[in-house]
Amino acid sequence: MPITESDILYEDNHLIAINKRAGDIVQVDETGDEPLDEQVKKYIATKYNKPNGAFLGVVHRLDRPVSGVILFAKTSKALERMNAIFKNREVRKTYFAVVKNKPARLEGNLVHYLIKNPKKNLVTAYNREEPNSQRSELNYKFAGEVGGFCLLQVNPITGRSHQIRVQLSSMQCPIVGDNKYGYPRGSRKGSICLHARQLEFIHPVQKEPVKIFAPLPIDGFWERFEHFQVS
């Protein structure tokens, strides 16, 4: 499905943010499906009449079954500066995760050491450092409960592959629909109940605070959590 104006959460001369749909891939992979970065390039080229195409830099990524705000750079200068902002952890990322099990502690900090098996595209979390592992850290808090499902606000401090999914699973709170990491049933929609709700950072060129907020998917399930606010 092509990108339209309704998918755009934020845009200026330097950056563009999209409300990613669950199931979209950010960059090309072995499936051959059209990636989101190519869709955004086409959108920019059409909107601004660029017959030779548009520059677009991928600042960060979201897993395919995850929805929510994802940011791209429209210039090489913005890409370089945003890469530094993410590398230096000068961005606040907030996710909403729906889980079935209420965490034993309603608020906490999780630190694990992750190892990814690229052949299986599966990450394993360890409680102590292992050879070739990556330190992974996040903060979480219980936000509320609706219809037997619990909403967690998650603020990752590091940005590892599958980090939130495997770390929440490690405390017996697998994300709804994420049967790769312990939820009993997968989603027929190719999605899991993990949504990148908000990004906050200082603009790399304008040097002003930016806060980008992504509405929850309209799918008959997420709507029940729309009234919860980022804290």
Rank of each mutant, 00 (worst) to 15 (best):
K100N: 08
F72Q: 03
K207R: 15
L168I: 03
Q39S: 14
Y43C: 12
Q27D: 15
P156R: 04
K77A: 13
E130G: 02
V59Q: 07
G57A: 06
D24M: 15
S67M: 05
V98H: 05
V26M: 07
N127I: 07
R89M: 01
L9D: 10
R61W: 11
N19I: 02
N88W: 02
S170E: 00
L71R: 00
K42F: 01
K141E: 13
I157P: 01
N117R: 04
E130F: 05
R92G: 06
A104P: 03
H203N: 03
P51Y: 12
K102P: 05
V58F: 11
E129A: 13
L152D: 03
R224T: 13
E129S: 11
N127E: 10
Q134D: 13
D33F: 14
R64H: 04
K119Y: 03
S187K: 11
E80R: 14
C150A: 03
A97L: 01
V26C: 09
D178P: 09
A45I: 10
D33N: 15
R81P: 08
H112R: 08
P2D: 13
H112S: 11
F213N: 09
N88F: 03
D12S: 00
N83C: 04
G108Y: 11
P204S: 00
N83A: 08
Q229V: 07
V40L: 08
Y183A: 06
S161W: 13
A45Y: 02
S170Q: 01
L138E: 02
